[in-house]
């Protein structure tokens, strides 16, 4: 299968599970997209029940969310990349954090990641999430924005087997396959999005070569 076929197939399959797929030419474009998306969305709605009551210190941390306007977590980015991203966010009054995600377990608006591989057959993202910050950013955010470099797109899961094995050999590792947003059909088999993880998944296909 040639690369173009993989892009088309990946896009089709990812959209089938309600991911939003766009194409970008540069990472700067991804930062603009993410800032714009965050600006457009309503502030994080997920407030832990009981926030209005007096709480213990630990639990109150969760509610600090109220003080924040909006927040993006981008733990995987280098300092250099963050320098490009932060001004864009700042301009819109959005906080951008790269660590301390555990302090915001009530929820953050957007988790931003650059993923390691894509699997066209199922529209799946492969993300080495061994860093706890990165892992949490993709779990507790309301929207997950993932950049997938086109050069990292493979046809099937079998085509990333060797790479996965190299992750898993001889050191602790936490790798995630992510396909669409968090979903459940546990009540009357009716599909509902965002039961635990992100409510939306945005995939930015990056023309990286």
């Amino acid at each position: 299968m040639c690369a173009m076929d993989n892009v088309a197939l990946f896009t089709e399959k990812a959209k089938l599970v309600s991911a939003v797929v766009s194409e970008i030419k540069s990472l700067e474009q991804a930062y603009e997209y993410t800032t714009e998306l965050c600006d457009q969305k309503e502030a994080c709605q997920l407030l832990l029940s009981g926030c209005e009551e007096p709480l213990s210190g630990k639990a109150e941390d969760l509610c600090q969310l109220k003080d924040w306007s909006k927040m993006i977590a981008a733990p995987g980015l280098s300092e250099e990349e963050l320098k490009k991203f932060i001004p864009l966010a700042k301009e819109k009054g959005i906080s951008l954090i790269k660590d301390g995600v555990r302090n915001h377990l009530g929820g953050i608006d957007i988790g931003f990641t650059v993923v390691d591989y894509g699997i066209a057959e199922t529209g799946t993202l492969v993300l080495d999430s061994s860093s706890e910050e990165l892992r949490l950013a993709t779990m507790i955010s309301e929207i997950h924005v993932a950049v997938l470099p086109k050069s990292k797109l493979r046809a099937t899961s079998m085509d990333v087997e060797k790479e996965l094995i190299s992750y898993m050999k001889d050191s602790p590792n936490y790798t995630a396959f992510i396909t669409g947003a968090s979903r459940t059909a546990d009540i009357e088999r009716v599909l509902a999005i965002g039961v635990h993880g992100p409510l939306e998944l945005h995939i930015l296909l990056w023309e990286d070569n």
Binding site: S130, A176, F177, T179
Partner: peptide, 20 residues
């Protein structure tokens, strides 16, 4: 369930980072 794959597949090798 007639899904091509589940939304998440998690591969855990070893005791991973846990900041607490």
């Amino acid at each position: 369930t007639g899904q091509a794959i589940t939304s998440y597949v998690t591969w855990i090798t070893g005791a991973n980072e846990c900041q607490v």
